[in-house]
Amino acid sequence: MVSIKYYLSQNSIVGVCILYYVLMALVVPGFFGANNTWNLVYNFIPLLILAIGQTFVILTAGIDLSITSIVAVASVVGGYLMSADSGLFSSPLITVLVGITGMVLAGAIIGLINGIAVTRLRMPAFMVTLTSLMFFSGLAIWLTQSKSIYNLPTLLVDAPYKTLLGLPYPVYLAGLVYLVSYLILNKTLVGEWIYAVGTNVKTSWLSGVNITSTIVFVYIISGVCASLGAMIYTARLETGSPVMGQNVLLDVIGAVIIGGTSLFGGKGKLQWTAAGALLMTMLDNSLNLLGMSFFLIMIVKGAIILLTALFNQYQPKSLVHA
């Protein structure tokens, strides 16, 4: 089967994922089984959504470090709008719809601010998003006086566990995000521009690419993805928390890098990111099952991200970003 061989040569991370899954299923007790599989899915889905947003940014040779603060702000905003303690709306459906809209808007606005700062102030993305990470993390805590928000509507809280055709709702949300992102990156003008800007900004500018709107766009996407991730976290924890998602940044960037998307921009695919996110989830899960402490797991994950980043640097990758 030449085609499978070729596919794996261009998508080595997918092969690594399968290999790791089989290995862990054989070696680690409790890894292979219905219970743990659901566990994997619930941890994988929000990470995937966040990592998809990050992929857009990294494809333009930028980086979005502010996603954890966006998760926190969105969670707090959603929590406030939906909590029975605030009692803003009587109908649970309207409450949830307004809450979700508020969360997505919060993410989009912070993304917009990031994008404008990167393009207009001509500051490095690293600096801009590090600053907004500090600013919005602080804002979320200050607004809530460091208190979590409880009493969220059951409609929201139950949603992650409801299933359609045997699959839980969050899977459909992630599927939708993936599909829309795939179409944007592969079928639209801005998708082509994202790859072009990441490959060579000067060439893109000379060739009439709208650099500003392309870059602002990717930060908005990242912000929206972060708020959708926040939605799942908020529902599962049944809390609007100002410190939500504090440890997720490493996993998100790690997932994108492990997948093989280049930090220098222009090179990367969504399916790589999906496989990278899956691998990160499996790593976490399996090391946990082996009884490693949180900190030891951090050490192992850090080492693996570094190794794959090095490995990817010497791997010729396909040009076609489909």
Binding site: T188, V190, E192, G208, L319
Partner: peptide, 28 residues
């Protein structure tokens, strides 16, 4: 500032005229 060096001939040639090939909304 000319070529997109690690991109294909197709991606290099299409770059400046992409806007002419937008079908309807969403930049399709």
């Amino acid at each position: 500032e000319g070529i997109l060096s690690f991109k294909s001939v197709l991606e290099n040639v299409q770059l400046a005229s992409l806007h002419q090939f937008v079908k309807a909304g969403f930049g399709w």
